[in-house]
Design a protein around this nucleic acid. Structure first.
Lengths: 222, 222
DNA sequence: GCATAAACATACAAACGTGTATGTATAATA
DNA sequence: TATTATACATACACGTTTGTATGTTTATGC
């Protein structure tokens, strides 16, 4: 069986990507072999070399799929993104964190990729170069948060340095993801993670969300 | 030159460990070769196989050196550790964070190891097993923090759930370390990192530290 | 309907790293 | 001072992975 329709070829490509996620997760990116990925996908190495230049290219494609499916939609959620940020910047941020944790907890494929990126990948050589490109996008994301926090400060929603607020927010999120992917029994995602985030929001001078531990009305603190 | 004194042998061992840190940092743990480490240390692979079972054993020794030189002294700082925790638990925690960031920023060898652990290592197979053992110690450290926060709550120093406070604290620290080792121009260590930590402490309901951005008296917020 | 190129499968050579076996000179020990 | 085990250096064989070259079949454009 050869020369499938270009529709089938795309399916093959997706299956290779899914297989790569599994193999990367099992053996780590560097020790995962193209032969193993091919076996996992039910094809031969020839198919992989047809769709991708090499393992790094395959890895890059995996990340691209994650970014365009998860990260980008998080920062640019709708057409009225800007008005949302302008009117309720703190709500925009809170809701974004919420969505993110929600997807992370419920989408197994996202979770697998995050586990790879955090615990099963060595950022050296070509892969380090790859990450350097994403550093610029990271800066953009922090810029969006910083702008939101600036507006939130002018709004009276918070009282804190916007830059440090933004860096602190992404750091706390990163740390929570790291610890949770490292040991999922440490705390629950998204429930406890969100309560911990609220500690930080309180530190920004924000009013507490009006939910308590039972999901009823009331303050989250105390 | 062979059969050195056992004092020299220990020196050789240390040089191999230092060389391993450099090679792990340059090529990543999995792609770093024992031949390269040997070259870096000015010995041959024979020396490495004499002092260590294999690469994983070498890696484990590197971590052990870090733990006993940095991590453990941080949680058990002095003989009156317990009275310190009992009398001023929040101060104990704050000071610990301070020391940690200080060492991370100024000790190049510590920094190198952290960069390896965070960005140049795949936690799979034997190395994953190795980390599982440290999960228990992680739990102990979180336990220490949780106990301190419990006392701080009874003290009136903070008002927050001790468990979530502890997990949040280590998560924020981890996230800051991650982001800073990933891109050191993002913020300054320890200065800005400590300001960001203060956001979290304020979220716990703590009174602000009486330093401002210029190091003078005054609140840190606003 | 035919030529062409897409979409893979198969085969091959070459490099690389690891583990172990063996060699060796000297510090420690008695 | 003779012996032994230490602290390495050297040599060898082995498996493993990668990149590429070539083969093969069929969808697709003309």
């Amino acid at each position: 069986m050869v020369r499938k329709t270009q529709e089938d070829a795309l399916i093959t490509r997706e299956r290779i990507l899914d297989a790569a996620i599994i193999q990367f997760g099992e053996h780590g990116v560097s020790r995962a072999t193209l032969a193993g990925i091919a076996r996992e996908a039910g094809v031969t190495r020839g198919a992989i070399y047809w769709h991708f230049k090499d393992k790094v290219d395959l890895f890059a494609a995996m990340i691209e799929r994650l970014v365009e499916r998860l990260v980008t939609p998080l920062f640019f959620r709708s057409d009225d993104n800007e008005t949302w940020i302008a009117e309720n910047p703190l709500g925009f941020v809170r809701e974004g964190v919420n969505e993110f944790f929600e997807k992370l907890a419920h989408d197994r494929n996202f979770l697998r990729v995050f586990e790879i990126l955090w615990h099963k990948c060595e950022y050296v050589g070509d892969i380090a170069l790859l990450r350097r490109k994403y550093l610029e996008e990271d800066a953009k994301h922090i810029g969006v948060l910083q702008r939101a926090f600036t507006l939130a400060g002018e709004n009276g929603q918070i009282s804190a340095n916007p830059r440090e607020a933004a860096i602190g927010l992404v750091s706390l999120i990163n740390g929570l993801i790291f610890n949770w992917t490292k040991n999922r029994s440490l705390f629950s995602m998204p429930e406890e993670a969100l309560f911990i985030m609220e500690i930080f929001f309180r530190g920004l001078g924000a009013k507490p969300k009006t939910i308590n531990r039972a999901g009823e009305e009331g303050a989250v603190y105390a």
